[in-house]
Amino acid sequence: MMEVGLQHFLVVSAILFSLGIFGVVTRKNAVMVLMGIELILNAANINFIAFAKYGNFGFDGQLIALFVIVLAAAEAAIALAIVLNIYKNFATVNVDEINKLKE
């Protein structure tokens, strides 16, 4: 039976991060993009916890993880509000069609 170590956590976190990036880059629906961002944040969280468990940093990692969770909630709230406003202005949430930045 293999002992679960730091590498395993990092691998899981890396997989999650890549999935998140994949979601953010490929999805057309803005809500799905947001979900990708959540995955990225949680990958970072896992890294924090893992390093806190195996490193010698006291409770700093856990605390920052909690902080990130709160931050993610707030970010989601604001981002959803932005998405709603985007829908109001463009009548769509398809990020491909929103290329106002070009002009």
């Binding site: 290329n99 930045l101 070009k102």
Partner: peptide, 14 residues
Amino acid sequence: MQTGKVQVYIVLLI
């Protein structure tokens, strides 16, 4: 380079 699409920017960023 300026396509106006956010996702392109993110790919470039990464």
